[in-house]
Design a protein around this nucleic acid. Structure first.
Lengths: 299, 299
DNA sequence: TGCTTTCCATCATATCAGGTGATAGTTTTG
DNA sequence: CAAAACTATCACCTGATATGATGGAAAGCA
């Protein structure tokens, strides 16, 4: 046998440390004292350590023994976590919750909900991925994640079930020193097409549809942060979620564009959906997260 | 039995995950395949979980099973730490190393040595205490710590064995705007006695000897940092370790006092000793730390 | 397709770790 | 000094578990 150490030996050791004597530990564990004595003896023999100092009346933990009791508590704690995970999945709890979210999803409420989820279900492993636009849906379809927070444009697929979660306003904006900012009248399609549009695009699908594409000279970005850098630097215009540009608008670094009727078609609020595969319903933890998140964004 | 989970079950579970099949795991563990099969069955029964999907040819880990394998690895890792501690103490290694240091001991080399000690003996628990002057020696005598880095003034006690470790220069200093700083001649005993001396004193022994006490109006401090604050604020003068005031001297915030022959008696370098009780010799880790520290301060 | 190999579940049997109960010795308590 | 509490040791026995054999199913191979 590679190692003869057993959890039972550790349980006995900790019980002795807690109870204060071999006999008391035996009573707590419902074993006779001799069994305790013997377990300690074999533990000491197999590990070749002296756990108790027998010179006095009742055995006293040695220095080594005290440290090993601490170690034993840690082992038992991790064993308890093992059993907690088992108990969780026994009640139908998924063993892990894998999430994917699209870049446009606001992270503030998500962070709060994830923290609350971890506190409620400490043994649940949570994994999280965010990639370019469309990545969340792709990971959902690939089976990598069980829950996606994503857009469903241009069309709602058949194989996923989605519930609306948040609506975010997209505002056409540009830098304060950009020509479009000083136009003095609503921008027409021609105005827009003569300037660079900074678009988010699905990196895996470069020639597919680009949500909100109007102009003809798009620069393509995968992540919002980098697009924001270019936007602030005055390289072009784009539609941005209201909550991300509010501060810049207030500070005057960005300005909101007014569009004429012709180009206003796709300025509807964008809806973020919580989606899962139709044949793979989220477990209790996933549903808990969704309801918590829904309550949080309702504020 | 409170919990029937055993380390052996976890070893088997992990072995299967590593080997890829029950049979291969059995070969690795030198048990027949039926023993593996049975262990898995009882683990699944007692925890009431399904670890393997038996629908295919060879059992495949379920989602829950995968997570539980991860958990099992963590339990086994902590069990391995338990055994590492036991193995360490089997070789005479102390189970924990408790240190106490006096405030004047320079911390820079100590931090380096402690980090190296932790890398060399990861399973060793290191505890560390620093209190007022004399506190290290007191904790050593009380048996709280096995090793003290401390002064041995005014006299070397009989019951401890000490080896010199570092000599630190004590410089009489005061703030640049203090009257003593602009004296223009070596300070006499009378000069010093008319000004406040900022002394470190043993908080447990307020009326005992105060190392380096010259003046008659001492302000007593327990920690060096606070004393430094008062020193810089121009409240008085004191002797400080060279390495702590070098920067302030260079910057002109503090100035070194020159003393006349009469008061120069106790300006000898102060020796920091590594001390242990004569009847309680440090183990390998303590000796390792001392030699590493000695090499470090030799630079 | 047919043969061989590999794999797993099940069962009866054997074995051994470990729990039980009794006893003796020691220290503490009153 | 007696009673109580505690531990070590021993013989004994129980039960968990490893073994070995068997059967069936899937996969590899010619």
């Amino acid at each position: 046998m590679i190692s003869s150490l057993s959890l039972d030996q550790l349980r006995v050791l900790v019980a002795i440390a807690d109870a204060g004597s071999f006999s008391a530990a035996g009573r707590n564990l419902r074993r006779v004292q001799s069994a305790i004595s013997q377990t300690v003896a074999t533990l000491e023999a197999t590990q070749e350590v002296t756990l108790f100092d027998r010179s006095g009346h009742r055995p006293q933990l040695t220095d080594t023994g005290r440290i090993l009791v601490q170690q034993a508590r840690m082992v038992l704690a991790s064993a308890a976590r093992f059993e907690a995970v088992a108990a969780g999945s026994r009640q139908g709890m998924e063993a892990e919750l894998a999430l994917a979210i699209d870049p446009l999803v606001p992270t503030a409420p998500l962070i709060g909900s994830l923290r609350a989820l971890h506190e409620t279900h400490p043994q649940l492993q949570i994994s999280f991925s965010t990639e370019g636009l469309g990545g969340a849906l792709r990971r959902l379809r690939a089976g990598d994640v069980s829950l996606a927070l994503c857009l469903l444009l241009p069309d709602a697929p058949e194989d996923v079930t989605a519930t609306p979660l948040i609506r975010i306003n997209l505002l056409p904006v540009t830098a304060a020193d950009h020509p479009l900012a000083t136009l003095g009248r609503p921008a027409t399609r021609v105005d827009l097409e003569t300037h660079i549009q900074l678009v988010l695009s699905d990196p895996a699908n470069r020639h597919g549809p680009n949500y909100g594409l109007t102009g003809s000279a798009p620069w393509r970005f995968v992540d919002l942060g980098r697009r924001m850098d270019f936007l602030l630097a005055g390289f072009g215009w784009c539609r941005m979620p209201e909550h991300l540009v509010k501060e810049h608008l207030d500070a005057g670094r960005l300005v909101r564009l007014t569009l004429d009727d012709d180009t206003r078609g796709n300025t509807d609020p964008l809806t973020i959906y919580a989606a899962h595969l139709a044949d793979r319903v989220p477990g209790p933890a996933g549903r808990w997260l969704l309801s918590n998140l829904a309550a949080r964004v309702a504020d």
